[in-house]
Design a binder for these strands. Structure first.
Lengths: 145, 145
DNA sequence: TTAAGTGCAAAATCTTTGCAAATGT
DNA sequence: ACATTTGCAAAGATTTTGCACTTAA
């Protein structure tokens, strides 16, 4: 973790009135490094010096504050990813992103900036937001053999 | 369960080489009655004479055969719904449906027949199928007070 | 100093597995 | 009769809760 990154993370924690503790910085560092969403078990195995319970609590806190968000992969396991660089305020959650599930490597990509076309629902439904899941092959697994 | 329904369910089970047992018929009857997807805990509480383990196994078997499908609500809990009337063959799963999550009553509607507009992904991704989630108010909860 | 956060132990849940008894074909 | 399917008991895994100790502010 570069010192620049560290500053960024500390700023982020400050902004949300969270203390800048080692476990939290580790989680942020890890998630921000990855372009894909990471499952709780995966995080756990990498952060093996952080207590499992602490990890749970960090993830919950981060999600509440809008620092990270949860997406579910095809098996229904929760994966966590940073909210796009500076979406992070608690009220404005733009959920209009695409989550891409790779069927081979199981990675979950959050393709945040993508315009969804207008979609019309049957009468009576009032839509607050969309989330689109796509399944298929990610660039890495789509390489010709 | 009318005798007509019963016939239908038995036929369905036959088609998939599953025995027509009481627990299975109950699950089918329950799910087919509901327009919305039902969570495993909900099913469990209604089918209180069916063992929890049996329910797990029935749901797994039905899903494998393509009789029902799983959708995840906003909290990540799995909800089960009948596959649309006669989609039920194991190979052709048209996943192009919209799952609507009501934020008030938590119901999950499967709006199967809905055309999704074309969506373009970044280079390198190969898409097999889309699933669209929408959150908001369902017709019931959207009624003026 | 003190409120927030961590880590451990223990409870509560949820899910899976093994096997004998029951059931459908 | 035979292969499935069920129900129970027990193992395994996951998640939550309580509380004393530590740490950032």
């Amino acid at each position: 973790m570069t010192s620049l990154e560290k500053e960024l993370f500390e700023e982020l924690l400050d902004k949300h009135h969270l203390k800048k503790t080692a476990p939290r910085l580790k989680v942020l560092s890890l998630l921000s490094k990855k372009e894909v969403a990471t499952s709780q078990p995966d995080l756990e195995s990498v952060l093996n010096d952080v207590d499992r319970v602490t990890l749970y609590r960090i993830l919950i806190a981060f999600e509440e504050k809008g620092i990270i968000h949860k997406v579910f992969d095809l098996d229904g396991t929760a994966n966590y990813a940073m909210c796009s660089p500076v979406c992070g305020d608690e009220h404005h959650h733009h959920d209009e992103h695409l989550h891409f599930n790779c069927t081979v490597c199981k990675s979950v990509y959050c393709l945040d900036d993508l315009h969804l076309p207008e979609i019309k629902l049957p009468k009576g439904f009032k839509v607050d937001g969309f989330t689109l899941y796509a399944a298929g092959l990610c660039p890495k697994c789509n390489k010709p053999a």
